[in-house]
């Protein structure tokens, strides 16, 4: 039983991270109707830029290597890079494609992900780098002593950060003026424009926030597995979460992330051995697919009626 709990908790913790990446998708989808496949590339770009600045800053400024000044400066610069990237994407890629079918925009973001990956590696090089956030990957002591359950401290802290971020974004979306404007834009661009919501500003804010989310996700994932090309696959992890939760639902992204995280780990442990393991790569997709057949609009999505 306690092995089950261990796996479940580990899965839920990584599920929070999936939720975080999925939230980046949801934000952009709600605001601009774009299913942004490049979100994974953005995670990679963000983490690589952060690590890259951490490496070069001491040389440029004479600051102490590995110090907190370098850390925060690199963080700020990476965040600015993400915002610039978002603004450029909006201007160069999305604006000319306004009013095109969703699927065209989707394909454009696949192209965009190639572009971003190429630029990131072109600027910073392609070698794998380590990233140290100063959190140890050791079991949480009191939990081990009290109930003999092994849960990594790193996972808990990471999930905590992601959880706070997810919660604050959800609140921001629900209760602030910007959140309301965002939801209006998500409902109907034309109508939002006509009541004086500045669409361009909203898009910049959304891409900025999505960049911020990508940076956090990239740092956490990069610290765990190294900053490398594989970070782009975080997007692939988030897609089934979106199917499960619905593309437009913030709570859906959260719950979907937890379900996918927990179920993929449990499946790997309990079903994996019978089929040779490694089923994490496809299990979330099949789960999401089966789910779709039962409820095509996702957990929290609204039922869609075709008007003719």
């Amino acid at each position: 039983m306690h092995f089950f709990l261990e796996v479940l908790i580990g899965g839920l913790l990584s599920g929070v991270l999936y939720a975080l990446v999925a939230l980046g998708f949801v934000l952009i989808f709600k605001a601009s109707g774009v299913f942004n496949f490049a979100q994974g590339a953005m995670v990679f770009f963000a983490a690589l830029t952060f690590v890259g600045f951490q490496e070069v800053l001491p040389g440029w400024t004479g600051l102490e290597e590995g110090g907190s000044a370098v850390f925060w400066l690199a963080f700020a610069l990476a965040l600015i890079s993400m915002i610039v990237l978002g603004v450029l994407t909006e201007k160069i890629v999305l604006r000319p494609l306004v009013n095109q079918p969703h699927i065209t925009l989707f394909m454009a973001t696949i192209g965009l992900s190639y572009l971003i990956e190429g630029i990131a590696q072109g600027v910073w090089g392609a070698n794998v780098r380590g990233l140290d956030l100063g959190i140890e990957d050791v079991p949480v002591e009191w939990l081990m002593e009290s109930s003999n359950i092994l849960v990594s401290k790193f996972d808990v802290v990471a999930a905590g950060i992601a959880g706070v971020l997810v919660a604050s974004l959800a609140l921001l979306f629900q209760y602030t003026k910007i959140g309301r404007a965002l939801r209006a834009v998500a409902d109907d661009h034309q109508a939002a424009l006509s009541i004086g919501i500045p669409l361009r500003h909203i898009w910049v804010i959304v891409w900025g926030v999505a960049g911020f989310v990508a940076l956090i996700a990239g740092m956490i994932w990069g610290a765990r597995n190294g900053v490398q090309f594989a970070l782009t696959y975080t997007a692939l992890k988030a897609l089934p979460v979106l199917i499960l939760g619905g593309f437009t639902s913030v709570p859906g992204a959260i719950v979907g992330g937890l379900i996918i995280g927990a179920s993929e780990k449990l499946a790997e442990v309990y079903i994996g051995p019978f089929v040779g393991g490694g089923i994490e790569s496809w299990f979330p997709y099949v789960l999401a697919l089966v789910f779709l057949l039962v409820r095509p609009e996702g957990l929290f999505g609204e039922k869609h009626i075709d008007r003719v």
Binding site: V93, Q100, M107, A108, G111, E117, G118, I119, G122, A126
Partner: peptide, 24 residues
């Protein structure tokens, strides 16, 4: 050589976006 391979990614990505915008 690594620059060339990254350059390839960039060119591919840019071509896709270019074609989708200019000549779908």
């Amino acid at each position: 050589a690594s620059f060339v391979s990254n350059f390839q990614l960039i060119v591919f990505g840019a071509m896709i976006i270019f074609f989708l915008i200019v000549e779908p």
